[in-house]
Design a binder for these strands. Structure first.
Lengths: 208, 208
DNA sequence: TTATTATTGTGAAAAATAGAACAATATGAT
DNA sequence: ATCATATTGTTCTATTTTTCACAATAATAA
């Protein structure tokens, strides 16, 4: 079992690059093309593929369509993923309106908020009461949630959805959550991303 | 020079955990407390600190306030960072309205969009025309930009702002940008984050 | 057909990162 | 004042990740 997060991220990047190449009319691709496209080395591309038993043709490179098939299968993209958003504040609402997920087979099917004023059942993506979330998860077989609530509410919301059957959480609250047994939590922390950027800006500036 | 991104991310997490501990009335902290708080090991905490010449007291742990001072200085948090947002779509607008950055010394001072309908000079965070971005960056000494434009527009927008003096970009477009000399680009790719989550959900499920 | 070339696939080497172990030592107890 | 204890700082070890290097081989050319 591969536990290298960066490796999986690279697979996603390869996949995205391959779609772009395919759109440009390319049919096959070499490891160094992909390396250029995602910013790595050719041997890392080949090693990544070899880990997952993906093989190409000596001197012939890789067929883009069959490569995409394999990557999509590894990444679980051969099925539609229904996702709910917890928290209909600025970030949560933006995610519900964001159209970029659809083409990745990710559909946001509902949002939930504790504030009655935010509830709106007639939205394209309806916003429901947080009280309904448990039954919604169960009756719709939802496995993935995006958590976009204020940090003070994040842990209790995480506990609620994980105990309701959610298996994976993408957490936007700037806070490390204790994850329930059998539930994976990935964090997206914009403040930390910016701090990181600032740190590396500063050190490269000083080095120069 | 430290190039380990994860290490810098951990520093941010330590910092955040320390503020929480401080708010709870704690004055000193031990490496294992911090390890628990951010999910690592005590020796990694001490190692991280030692890399940056941060020292505590044998048997006495670390003074939270002086530790915070040092971490904040390393992370460049002893100054206010003015940030602009390129693209006033769903994500860009949400970021402009997001209040979480302020307490981190990050102030979004303006947004820019190519669509005249999006321009609004009387907003709390004004949305200006993309044509003005170069002069705005120069006259306000802006060094950091968040890029939240459609992927088709991302590279040209990145080229524009980098050539105007931007030194760091947080890119939300699901696309790896070629970075201009002297400009650092960090990517936040929500599709890839979700794919990653899905992959690890699937493998842990199969393993079980 | 045979030689040449380009590219893969992978094992071995190197580099980077994390973790364990423990001497050094400050603190508090007796 | 001495002892016992808790905790740091750092060295050493282990693990993970990346890169190198090259044999194997498929495609192309002569």
């Amino acid at each position: 079992m591969i536990t290298n997060k960066n490796c999986i991220i690279r697979l996603s990047r390869y996949k995205n690059a391959l779609y772009r190449l395919q759109a440009l009319g390319f049919v096959k691709v070499f490891s160094d093309n992909l390396a250029d496209a995602v910013g790595g080395t050719a041997s890392q591309v080949r090693k990544d593929f070899s880990i997952f038993g993906i093989s190409g043709n000596k001197k012939g490179g890789y067929q883009i369509d069959s490569l995409l098939e394999k990557l999509n299968s590894i990444l679980g993209k051969d099925q539609l993923h229904k996702v709910i958003v917890i928290g209909a504040g600025h970030i949560g609402s933006a995610l519900m309106r964001y159209r970029g997920f659809e083409k990745e087979g990710i559909r946001i099917v509902a949002g939930f908020d504790i504030d009655p004023a935010k509830i709106n059942r007639s939205n394209p993506v309806p916003v429901l009461s947080l009280e309904e979330v448990k039954s919604f998860i169960k009756s719709n077989g939802i496995r993935i949630a995006i958590l976009a609530v204020p940090d003070i509410a994040a842990q209790s919301a995480a506990d609620l959805i994980c105990s309701s059957g959610i298996k994976g959480v993408l957490n936007f609250a700037p806070l490390r959550l204790k994850n329930a047994e059998g539930c994976i939590i990935n964090n997206v922390n914009l403040e930390i991303e910016l701090e990181n950027l600032i740190y590396f800006m500063n050190v490269t500036e000083k080095t120069k």
